[in-house]
């Protein structure tokens, strides 16, 4: 019999704490698949966020630091400046990168720090119970936008890729999702490309991943995946936003 799937070597044999249907688990696995395939275990240093992804060091068999909420890009900058030969990436949610840590992310991008940011956009603050995130869609209901996000009162969904694309320090920005097998493969390719950009010393790379949070979206896993296609991608179009060759 042919083995079609196996656990990546660098993914520890632990049970994910993520809710059923959560995108974080898929993204965690993809990252370790890429680390395996690019033979990066002995080079990689990951900066974990505050957010549902914060316990990823329980799953990643690579060197990891857990940073304060939003400070991942600054911490990764410090690590990378000391160890330019390593592969340094931060893993950040949308609250983490697009609200409390916007300054740190923006300026790391602007300086063209050769780090990679894995940006998990699930449109809510997952960990703290489903409050509005900067990426929450217009009219989307969350615990702090009970009547739907009203742009007049609560602003508009923040498009990190498009904003960062204006900065001369960024070399590769792509928005992907993980709501179906084909999309997962594309996401994996994007992560590989981001890491390759870093290894080639090109500059700042970021992969934004639209990620289902069935729990806080109050949907089943299948419905959540469909909602990404039907609603979320309308405000967050998929694709390469910037690529400097």
């Amino acid at each position: 019999m042919k083995k079609v799937y196996t656990r990546p070597k660098t993914l520890k044999e632990a049970h994910f704490h993520y809710c059923p249907g959560c995108g974080h688990g898929i993204i965690n696995r993809l990252l370790m698949e890429v680390v395996d395939e690019m033979d990066l275990r002995e080079k990689a240093i990951c900066v974990a966020p505050a957010g549902c992804g914060m316990l990823l060091y329980n799953y990643f068999d690579i060197d990891t630091l857990e940073s304060a909420h939003g400070r991942g890009a600054a911490v990764a900058t410090g690590i990378k400046r000391v160890r330019p030969e390593n592969l340094v990436f931060s893993y950040q949610g949308d609250g983490d990168l697009a609200a409390i840590g916007t300054a740190e992310g923006f300026h790391a991008a602007n300086r063209g720090e050769p780090i990679s940011v894995i940006f998990v956009n699930n449109g809510v603050y997952g960990m703290t119970g489903g409050q509005m995130a900067p990426t929450t869609l217009t009219d989307q209901v969350t615990t702090t936008t009970p009547l739907g996000r009203d742009p007049i009162l609560a602003g508009h969904p923040v498009k990190i890729c498009e904003v960062f694309a204006m900065l001369d320090g960024t070399v590769y920005l792509e928005r992907v999702t993980v709501n179906n097998p084909a999309a997962v493969l594309k996401a994996k390719k994007a992560i590989k490309k981001a890491f390759q950009c870093q290894l080639d010393g090109k500059g700042f790379s970021l992969v934004e991943i639209l990620s289902p949070c069935p729990t806080n979206w109050k949907m089943g896993p299948v419905e959540a995946c469909r909602w990404i296609d039907e609603v979320m991608t309308k405000q967050f179009p998929l694709g390469v936003v910037k690529e400097v060759s």
Partner: peptide, 26 residues
């Protein structure tokens, strides 16, 4: 050696933290 004029004191102290965890005197 490494010098960065950071975007804020918050960023500076977190860069220090990153440099320190990477083994440098920061």
């Amino acid at each position: 050696r490494v010098f960065i004029q950071s975007e804020s004191e918050i960023a500076a102290i977190n860069m220090v933290l990153g440099a320190s965890v990477a083994g440098a005197r920061a």
